[in-house]
Design a protein around this nucleic acid. Structure first.
Lengths: 278, 278
DNA sequence: GCTTGACTTTGACGTTGCGTCAAACCCGCA
DNA sequence: TGCGGGTTTGACGCAACGTCAAAGTCAAGC
């Protein structure tokens, strides 16, 4: 019989660990002195302790290990648990690999640009939302910007504040078309079928912004022009982290546009639907 | 300004998380109502929150993130932290891969043998120990077993209990020799140079059992013959888990041999020095 | 103006597997 | 009969929140 310290030394575990396993009922000492409370372990308990340690190595929790030590039904049951555990470890492994890529791409970014700003790409999911928008193609940026201003101002006037949510621009540049194929409009707090007529005879029609499970997003202050560099940043991020673009990009104006035209003070979230590439 | 719930929804985090970040000083609300304690967040705080989330994705702790948010010295500092983190993640990745192999080999084992017994291989390190032993080659198992019995009995008689520790057999089968090249003796609790003479004019000489950093070990009750199946089990384990044998194997008799010859009740720990194979 | 239901506040405990004190005993050796 | 090292129980700490609970607040509908 060994005292807890000796037994701990033999088994290469800490005495605290043995007391803890005792407390959980995983490994009770062969004998406890009634008067002093001293725990005494037999070398015969080493195999049981080793079983615990081996199962722990496999990633099982102590709670899961407990029942497995009763060697009655354990064979099939153990197999089942291990199969589950395998799936879990595989998933976690993929996550870690992704994390490693994130870290490396971020390091590379610092080395290239030195800066640390504007590169906080975040993954999120978005819910579907009713959308009241104008779908049209534009020859150049200036034309598009003018139209966005128009929709922003007239929309703000004509849609009830309680119904109107955020100004959103969806870019459907599927092919490398010369023209900008945009959908400009407001998301709504609740469904509505009413169309809205703007100056110049433009018409906002009701539709729906579909849900997207995974969006790579970045928030940028500033004008549309500058936001184009952000597009590049997100693109780099997406490539470096083994994602690919899976749908039309969105620009969400997080603040109602108040200042003079040009959106100098605007806060814009750029969103790219993405999916992981194997 | 948004209340905590709305802001949480926008940023896809929980309200609890925002309160927690407030508490840590990572992200304090733009305004707090003096009377009610309600937190109000500005959309302008979203970039900061996103920075936090992005850095968290990279695996940094909240404690590490705090200082990085002051954008004064962060660029080089961030790079340094990320380099550290990368090393950490890489190590953890290797560990997980090893764990996955462990799990898979264990599943395969269950499928082959159905059993769950006797396969608790665990890794440990052993300290160097003074050793009093007889080094010799034997033609067959029987001869070796007889000699082990002799050393066990005579050694127990002639070495003081306070000095004598455990009976250990070291097998130096470097080449696939026909003969068993064994070192049979006792480890000692403290160094001693005295040799011990046994019956039949055999002599135990002092030497040292070297330390081994990584030992694959398994504990088996039973005789030497049965223990040979254990050798196979450990071998399988070593291969499946990408280790390789890196030195002479040891058999440690954990209990002083008491019963009749044959070691029926003995408890033996088999130890293989191993190293990881890349 | 009042009711009501959704929201928010602080505070506390739980999670996992022990590490690390602290104060009070205990053991075996000289 | 000391004494130094081991042992006991008990408690707190960790990392980043999730999940109640009780009490107070807000905003919309009547």
């Amino acid at each position: 019989m060994f005292r807890i310290g000796e037994f701990a030394q033999i088994a290469q575990v800490s005495a605290r660990q043995l007391r803890f396993y005792d407390q959980l009922g995983l490994l009770q000492p062969a004998h406890i002195d009634r008067e002093t409370g001293y725990r005494y372990y037999s070398i015969r308990q080493l195999p049981r302790l080793n079983s615990i340690l081996a199962l722990k190595e496999l990633g099982l929790t102590l709670e899961q290990i407990g029942p497995l030590l009763k060697d009655s039904i354990s064979a099939t049951e153990l197999r089942a648990m291990l199969t589950l555990k395998r799936a879990e470890v595989e998933r976690s492994l993929h996550e870690q690999q992704a994390q490693l890529r994130h870290i490396e791409s971020r390091i590379a970014q610092i080395d290239r640009h030195g800066g640390t700003e504007g590169f906080d790409v975040i993954l999120k999911s978005v819910e579907p939302a009713p959308f009241l928008s104008l779908h049209c193609a534009y020859a150049d940026m200036d034309e598009a910007v003018r139209m966005i201003s128009l929709v922003a101002e007239d929309g703000a006037r004509q849609i009830k504040p309680a119904l109107r949510d955020k100004l959103i621009v969806v870019a459907r540049n599927d092919r490398d078309d010369e023209k900008l194929d945009l959908e400009i409009g407001f998301s709504l707090t609740r469904p509505s079928n009413a169309a809205v007529r703007l100056r110049g005879d433009y018409l906002l029609r009701a539709s729906e912004l579909p849900a997207v499970e995974t969006m790579a997003t970045i928030v940028r202050p500033g004008t549309n022009l500058e936001s184009h560099t952000s597009f590049g940043a997100v693109g780099t991020w997406i490539e470096a982290n083994h994602y690919q673009i899976a749908g039309p990009c969105r620009e969400v104006f997080l603040e109602p546009i108040t200042g003079p035209p040009g959106f100098e003070g605007a806060l814009v979230e750029i969103q790219f639907p993405v999916r992981q590439v194997a």
